[in-house]
Design a protein around this nucleic acid. Sequence first.
DNA 1: GCTCGTCAAGGACCT
DNA 2: AGGTCCTTGACGAGC
Length: 322
Amino acid sequence: MTVYRLGYVAMSLNLQNASPSQTMTLKSFKNINDWEAAVRKLERIAKSNIQNCLRLLKHNKAHEVDFFRLSSRLVPLATHEDLAKWDYIAALKESLIELGRFSEANGMRVDFHPDHFVVLNSPDKEIFQVSLDVLKYHYLLLRYMGLSPDHRCVIHLGGRYADKEQSLERFIDHWSVVPKGIQKMLIIENDDTSYTLGNCLYVCEKLNIPQVFDIHHHLANHDGESWEDHWPRVVNSWSHSPLPVKMHISSPKSEKEFKAHADYVDVDLLLDFVKKTNGSARQIDCMIEAKKKDNALFKLTNELKKHPNIEMITQSSFKWKD
DNA sequence: GCTCGTCAAGGACCT
DNA sequence: AGGTCCTTGACGAGC
């Protein structure tokens, strides 16, 4: 019997003024002539983002949601080369530890998914280095939150660069120069344009990396393969992880805009996944990637509650009963 | 208190 | 080779 746990991404539609992604562009930073004053403003924004994250976790606790993706934009400009001498960790230490403690004390799984500009298979050395810098930033946030960074950060394999096979092998080549701590932090997700679940599993098995299965991406990009055939390999890729198997689920916005995310997740898509994977693992964590964020999660759980074969365990976790 | 253009990034894709 | 789109939420200018 598998326990399924639902989570959502980065922000809530139910909390007012609780954005964890307030920002400052490089342009507006440079418009402030006093460097110290500009940095102080950045630090105010970053602290507010982290404090808003804590509010989000408290909101989640109230609704028994204990799976959550943190915004990657907590610290604006943290990885920008022009701010390399800015010691953002020193300014944010206390806020970070408070956030980490709350998530640990409440048994929450929190993780990151930096956007697609992290490309470890880039043939351009500078882009590869910037990607490492961005990953190091995520690593530091986790460390200073007091959390083990292992398997907390989802990335994609990267670009095709006109030769997909060679570019996939370049990921494997580059992996050897990725610092060990960052290697252990990473998990790989199939994408909707280039690397299919089969491609990703090949890399994951070679490098001993857990595979994050994205069912929406798979439907958009699958080379005629069925995910069901690959599923045992996905589960097996998590065998060395202390964390449960993780997957992403979203519904297409429309037939025409198939790759875009819909407001909500179709409950039948989730039910089909549950029926096909029930019993395959002790627990599977399902990340709801929908425009309506936590409201999409709440809508799903309301629909699940009414299903005769679903037994709710908490407000956001459940199991299938025959 | 709205709407719309802007910001920031790398790559895919089209001309 | 160059231009446009993709994605994201926030922000700021202008009404």
